[in-house]
């Protein structure tokens, strides 16, 4: 019997050999039928990307351009296909965004381009592609990653959207601040909202769930920052738009409630070490609108203070909030027309769009900063759960 001498790690070159006729099985098992909640949960982050890249390396090693082209086309088409099929599932989209980016980083890290080899170990440099320059395919993968990112934002927005108005505006977590006479029974505590309504906690839990999923998939930290910034933009824009359209939301107590909710969101950012990703800044218009609800609105000094404070709100938005402002009790007066005129005069030189509402469909441009991996390809083992027995470690 041939003695099966277990080969030591160092004998492997970090490639995976496969037969041309197995290419379809490869993309079927590794892409089309892989369940992010199934076997994929136990994989090292980015494993599918590394496996696909190791197969690509072997096709390059054979100097077989047809095999390289065919594999890349199959991989890209399969990822697009799975996202067409399950593009409304956040986990699936997040999983393939992370793996598409990892695959793109591998193509750069092992391209042989000096600029992408700075952090490589000598062994990793030995593993660079030897025959083909895949710069054009990198561009196609980058285009695909942008499409997947936008799909992820849409997925996430569909989940977050129903929570925002209820959680950020309607649900009151600060007891009694609305000045409503407490009824005989103690008001419900903040965390138990009426059936079916969302609270601020619902939003925070959902943000944590998104964040945990992306981390589990090995999403680049720089990309997670961009996703979180986009999430906060959507929360801030939807909340402000509703405040600008609803008289019942423009009161001193609502201003207090909104500032409390924003502070909880900022706490969440701090907790996730995401204070510098630009997310907090996207809430600035909402913060200023909440402050506007709480400051005095009578004298010229008040007008001066408001004009210098509300530098991220348009004149139309400031005027709208002042018009909608509803005194919380009989002792307080409404904002006078004269005062609003004063504000408009002070702001008439501003060069700004007359638009009132923020565009909640705005998606910030996404970038995928190069993120090399320290993982040594020759050490990668393929779990049997992936049913890829037809691949041979080389």
């Amino acid at each position: 019997h041939p003695v099966n001498i277990p080969r030591r790690e160092k004998d492997f070159q970090g490639m995976l050999e496969y037969k041309k006729e197995d290419e379809l099985k490869l993309v079927k098992n590794l892409i089309l039928e892989l369940k992010p909640r199934g076997v994929a949960v136990n994989l090292i982050p980015g494993l599918p990307a590394y496996i696909l890249f190791m197969c690509l390396r072997h096709a390059d090693y054979l100097n077989d351009d047809q095999k390289v082209r065919s594999l890349l086309t199959s991989v890209i088409n399969s990822i697009k296909k799975i996202l067409k099929k399950r593009g409304d599932d956040f986990e699936t989209v997040s999983f393939w965004l992370a793996n598409t980016c990892r695959f793109l980083h591998c193509l750069k890290q092992y391209s042989g381009d000096e600029q992408f080899m700075k952090y490589n170990t000598p062994k990793q440099n030995d593993h660079c592609l030897s025959n083909f320059d895949l710069a054009e395919y990198r561009q196609v993968l980058s285009d695909l990653a942008i499409q997947i990112y936008q799909q992820l934002i849409k997925c996430m927005e569909n989940i977050l959207q129903p929570m925002i108005v209820s959680g950020m505006l309607e649900h009151e977590t600060i007891q009694g601040v609305s000045g409503v006479k407490p009824t005989g029974l103690r008001k419900r505590t903040s965390s138990i909202a009426d059936e079916g309504t969302y609270t601020l906690d619902s939003i925070l839990r959902q943000l944590s769930s998104f964040h945990a999923t992306m981390c589990q998939h090995g999403t680049d930290p720089e990309l997670i920052k961009q996703v979180v910034k986009q999430q906060f933009y959507i929360i801030g824009a939807v909340t402000l738009n509703n405040l600008l359209l609803r008289k019942d939301m423009c009161s001193w107590s609502k201003g207090m409630q909104i500032r409390y909710n924003v502070s909880q969101l900022e706490e969440w950012l701090r907790d996730k070490n995401l204070m510098v990703c630009g997310a907090k800044e996207t809430l600035e218009p909402l913060i200023q609108a909440a402050q506007l609800l709480q400051v005095k609105k009578k004298t010229d000094e008040d007008a001066e203070a408001i004009c210098s404070m509300c530098n991220t709100l348009t004149t139309a938005q400031i005027v709208k909030v002042l018009n909608l402002y509803t005194p919380v009790n009989a002792f307080e007066e409404r904002v006078s027309v004269t005062f609003i005129r004063t504000i408009q005069n002070r702001l008439r030189d501003r060069k700004e769009s007359p638009q009132l509402l923020l565009d909640t469909k705005t998606i910030y441009p996404v970038t995928f900063p190069f993120s090399p991996s320290s993982l040594a390809l020759e050490t990668i083992q393929i779990p049997s759960s992936l049913s890829l027995g037809f691949l041979t470690r080389v």
Partner: peptide, 30 residues
């Protein structure tokens, strides 16, 4: 050490063109 042979640039189709090259029947295509 001999200079590495220059790598051959593989021309890539665009994402849309790749779609045409779909390698398997699109079950869910109408």
């Amino acid at each position: 050490r001999p200079l590495p042979r220059p790598r051959i640039l593989l021309k890539a189709p665009t994402l849309a063109e790749m779609e045409e090259m779909n390698l398997f029947e699109d079950e869910d295509s109408p």
